[in-house]
């Protein structure tokens, strides 16, 4: 029953290239509350896919389930393995969060959640916790993307401004060299100028080859940088289309774009 709603609105996913991440009929509950019901979506390699929805729609719940912090009541999440063809997609819902990080998914949580008592450098090192190889190239890349982090490297992360903390949170997530980057409302509480800067960098990270799943309440901005988008409403996928089409969609304009 829950499936009908999401299936009719899902476009035919390109049959040729398998999705990098695939979410099928996902139900997630907090006790008796159903936060997600029958959610299905696909993220193809190289895309920026955005999920828009108002406060309480279940966006954070979906990201936390993908990362393994929450266990679904039903449904499955699968990730394309790194090595091609013979391997079937890996099912994520039985794995623990650190194992999911190791498979190449990195999550920038809502509200940034940097470690305020650790230095900027230590925060970056934690982002690479699963790796045992040389990190200097990755640290250099983070410093190029966000020069302010280089200046502040030995400062406690708690002393950074909100925008700098968001940059640190993104840089920290890049340290694990993710194939898929999950971003939970990176624009939250930031000045428009900083938001624009961060969104430019998101696009740059994508251009360098990282697939991005961007969750936003700020639908306008998100739709502008995304290739495709899903609309989530009270735990269900309401519609999905190319980002351009949704920008032009009167229903979306009315509900999420302020007119």
């Amino acid at each position: 029953m829950t499936r009908i709603g999401s299936d009719t609105s899902s476009p035919a996913v390109s049959a040729a290239a398998p999705a990098l991440l695939s979410v099928r009929d996902l139900d997630v509950r907090y006790g008796a509350i159903c936060a997600l019901q029958g959610v299905s979506l696909n993220i193809n390699p190289g895309e920026i896919v955005t999920l828009i929805g108002s406060n309480g729609a279940g966006k954070t719940t979906l990201l936390r389930t993908i990362s393994g912090l929450l266990k679904p009541a039903n449904g499955e999440i699968t990730l394309l393995p790194t090595s091609p063809s013979p391997h079937p997609p890996t099912a994520l819902s039985k794995l623990r969060p650190h194992e999911i990080v190791r498979l190449g998914i990195s999550h920038v949580p809502e509200g940034r959640q940097i470690f305020p008592n650790l230095t900027v450098s230590e925060n970056l090192l934690l982002g690479a916790y699963q790796r045992r190889d040389d990190l200097s190239a990755d640290i250099a890349r983070c410093h190029t993307l966000f020069p302010i982090l280089k200046e502040r490297q030995s400062q406690k992360a708690g002393t950074l401004s909100g925008g700098e903390q968001q940059m640190l949170a993104i840089a920290r997530a890049l340290m694990s060299r993710p194939r898929l980057l999950l971003l939970d409302e990176p624009s939250l509480g930031l000045a428009p100028l900083i938001v624009r800067k961060i969104f430019d960098i998101i696009r740059e990270i994508n251009a360098e080859g990282t697939t991005i799943f961007l969750v936003e309440q700020n639908a306008h901005l998100a739709l502008k940088i995304a290739h495709r988008a899903y609309v989530l409403q009270t735990g269900r996928i309401l519609m999905t289309d190319s980002a351009q089409a949704l920008l032009a969609n009167p229903e979306v304009q009315k509900a999420y774009l302020g007119g």
Binding site: S67, L69, P97, H98, V101, P109, Q113, F115, L126, G127
Partner: peptide, 13 residues
């Protein structure tokens, strides 16, 4: 500092 964020860093808590 924070259990769940540490997990997201790949820490086996």
């Amino acid at each position: 500092h924070r259990f769940d964020t540490a997990m997201l860093m790949g820490v086996n808590t």
